[in-house]
Design a protein around this nucleic acid. Structure first.
Length: 631
RNA sequence: GCCGGCAUAGCACAGUGGUAGUGCAACGGUUUUGUAAACCGUAGGUCGUCGGUUCGAAUCCGACUGCCGGCUCCA
């Protein structure tokens, strides 16, 4: 635990002390330090709102001012249980009700482990520590928000009120922290995306979680696809294209149904005569509130019923793998064909729970930078390594430094439930992956029980501007599903064998990756990605200047540079301000001086005027920077 | 899906019982300019939806939908 985490953990105790002074019956669960602060989970009849914060903070202040010592006390299990039953844990003294969450926690502490309490003034808590010496060591604190959380993070457990706060050694550091949060809010991709006209959400007509890519956002989408296509072509991938839906049999075979069904849009059902009907009966309810019956349909009290039995069901695809597997199955394969690397920017649909949707980071329609590599066991290590190297190459292009590689493995106790029951294959593939990671010198953390149901995986975790964690890229091993689809290749020894499959998506989905890039660059995209790469700005609307500007505009557009032109008669300062606000990467300012000299005055977004250059030199520089994808 | 909050013009916000306002953006005009915002004018909202209370509702109450903060979950 770092010094700051220790301080914040102590702050949580001070928070609990303060809440108990106001509401002595409060029941506390867990109060750890977290990124950016701390929280304490509390069960309390009174709904704590930000209006209560001043009152609670005043009590906290009193506690830090009292400068109580944090006293560590070792107790036996029986003593701890007895105290909990008397309601004295996470409490100021004995209470009529037991400290039920603390009791539950004590009972789960393994035999033989030391049990400790911490006291500050009247407050006693079950706690492993450590803490700062005295409550007065907490120099500055503030409560920030209140949310709700399930006890132990399990949605079957009761929901507690989670009071968040933050604390620092002194007020200066706390002020800096809040200033930084303000800055971070400005980078929020939802805000920038709207301001810059990159994407739009239209929950009423299109639906929640179904982003519309506006022209400027689409420019970024297409640049990323171009990068992926070039990179994958060079790495020996071949491109395929598949439909957005498939029959039920596809997902029964893959094993996604019924386990994954909740995350899929409901099936489209076809009647026996081939006519489609809505799959959900409540879609019949009149949404217009009119009393007229839908034409051509017989109303019925029990709701509209299909006249014919369901002949077929189709699902929007939630993943591309099964389609790619069927592409593999479409032709016979020899070991000479392997590795076969099928790539596609596949559009998938996932019915994420409404509360999970979050801007572009979590959506219901996803364009995935997907590929499936079918290979032999001998080829696996090289292929897996090459995929990891591709990740690193991408990250260097985007100047992405802060990420974490997470190696997710299975939990042997959940074989046959969460994970396919193939203990030998799990061990073998996990060993292979671990070896590749170690040999490549890639730093990673290993997380059990997080694998896909069909094999181990590596996820790359990043953090959004406002601190949420996301998986931005994934690299997964699949030793199970190819067999379910009966995929085989004929080996050297003339025996049919099942290939291993690597699922990989180094650029994740367009939605999440671009959402992340917006925040990463704070909207100030490098030239090659910038939605508006160049804007030509004339000083005044003199026709001679306009002609010169139009010629440059034509020349840039002929080279597929996203260029706009501002010929208006607004004052030059206003035109510059417009372009800067729009985060246009390069501004070419043209006045009479430039026209006469055959120059353009180059101004870079955020960097200001960099001076006049000969027209040809300036344009060649722009083309080269784009071609080389320079920062 | 769960807990809590919020919903007024394209955007940012004001308006707490007497039938809607400001700034920016948009549009029309004036201004003719050297690197972050010139001036004048015009237009734009059945105040998320449905229902209730009231002589009267943006305002009070309820339901629904959506969004936001979290939880759960995930590319």
């Amino acid at each position: 635990m770092t010094d700051l985490e220790r301080l914040r953990h102590s702050s949580a105790h001070v928070l609990a002390t303060a809440i108990l002074r106001i509401w002595p019956e409060a029941q506390f669960a867990a109060g750890p330090p977290v990124e950016g602060g701390f929280y304490y989970d509390v069960e309390l009849r009174h709904r704590i709102t930000p209006e209560d914060f001043p009152r609670i903070e005043a009590e906290m202040k009193a506690e830090t001012k009292a400068n109580h010592v944090f006293e560590r006390v070792e107790v036996t299990r029986d003593e701890a249980i007895a105290l909990a039953k008397e309601g004295r844990l996470a409490a100021l003294g004995a209470r009529p009700e037991p400290s039920k969450f603390k009791l539950d926690i004590v009972e789960r502490i393994p035999e033989g482990e030391t049990i400790t309490l911490y006291r500050n003034g009247d407050f006693t808590d079950l706690c492993a520590g450590p803490h700062v010496m005295r409550t007065g060591n907490i120099g500055a604190f503030r409560l920030t928000h209140v949310a709700s959380a399930y006890y132990k993070g399990d949605e079957r457990n009761p929901q507690l009120q989670r009071i968040y706060g933050t604390a620092f050694k002194n007020k200066t550091q706390m002020d800096e922290h809040f200033a930084m949060l303000e800055e971070a809010k400005k980078r929020d991709h939802r805000k920038l995306g709207a301001e810059m006209g990159l994407f739009a959400m239209d929950p009423e007509y299109v639906g929640p979680g179904l982003p519309l890519w506006l022209p400027k956002g689409t420019a970024i989408v297409e640049e990323l696809e171009k990068l992926a296509k070039e990179t994958e072509f060079a790495a020996g991938y071949v491109r395929v294209r598949t439909p957005h839906l498939a029959r039920e049999k596809m997902y029964q075979t893959s094993g996604h149904l019924p386990y994954y069904a909740e995350s899929m849009f409901p099936a489209m059902e076809l009647e026996d005569d081939g006519g489609a009907r809505a799959s959900s009966p409540h879609s019949e309810a009149s949404s217009l509130g009119t009393s007229s019956e839908p034409e051509g349909r017989m109303p019925s009290e029990a709701g509209w019923k299909p006249a014919l039995p369901i002949a077929d069901r189709y699902y929007l695809k939630a993943m591309n793998c099964p389609h790619h597997h069927r592409i593999f199955a479409a032709e016979p394969h020899s070991y000479r064909d392997l590795p076969l690397r099928l790539a596609e920017y596949g559009c998938c649909y996932r019915y994420e729970q409404s509360g999970e949707l979050f801007g572009l980071m979590r959506v219901r329609s996803l364009n995935m930078n997907d590929a499936h590599i079918y290979c032999t066991e001998e080829q696996f290590a090289d292929e897996f390594r090459a995929v990891n190297e591709m990740y690193l190459k991408y990250f260097s292009i985007f100047g992405l430094g802060k990420y974490q590689m997470r190696f997710s493995t299975h939990d042997p106790e959940k074989l046959g439930q969460k994970f396919v029951d193939e203990p030998e294959l799990w061990k073998k593939t996990e060993d292979m992956v671990r070896r590749v990671l170690v040999e490549s010198g890639i730093h990673f953390v290993e997380v059990p029980n997080e694998a896909a149901f069909y094999g181990p995986k590596i996820d790359v975790q990043v953090w959004s501007a406002i601190g949420r964690e996301f998986t931005i890229a994934t690299n997964q091993v699949d030793f199970a599903v190819p067999r379910k689809f009966g995929l085989v290749y004929r080996d050297r020894d003339n025996v049919e064998k099942t290939p291993l499959c690597i699922h990989r998506a180094p650029l994740g989905t367009h939605e999440r990756f671009i959402g992340f890039l917006i925040e990463h660059y704070a909207g100030n995209f490098p030239l090659w990605l910038a939605p508006e790469q160049v804007r030509i700005i004339t000083i005044g609307d003199d026709p001679a200047l306009a002609d010169y500007a139009k010629a440059i505009h034509r020349e840039l557009r002929a080279s597929e540079v996203r260029t706009d032109i501002d010929l208006s008669n607004d004052p030059i300062k206003a035109k510059i301000a417009d372009a800067e606000t729009a985060k246009v990467h390069t501004m070419l300012v043209i006045g009479h001086r430039d026209l006469e000299a055959g120059n353009v005055s180059v101004r870079l977004h955020g960097k200001g005027n960099v001076g006049a250059k000969p027209r040809a030199e300036a344009l060649a520089g722009i083309l080269a920077a784009i071609r080389e994808r320079r920062g």
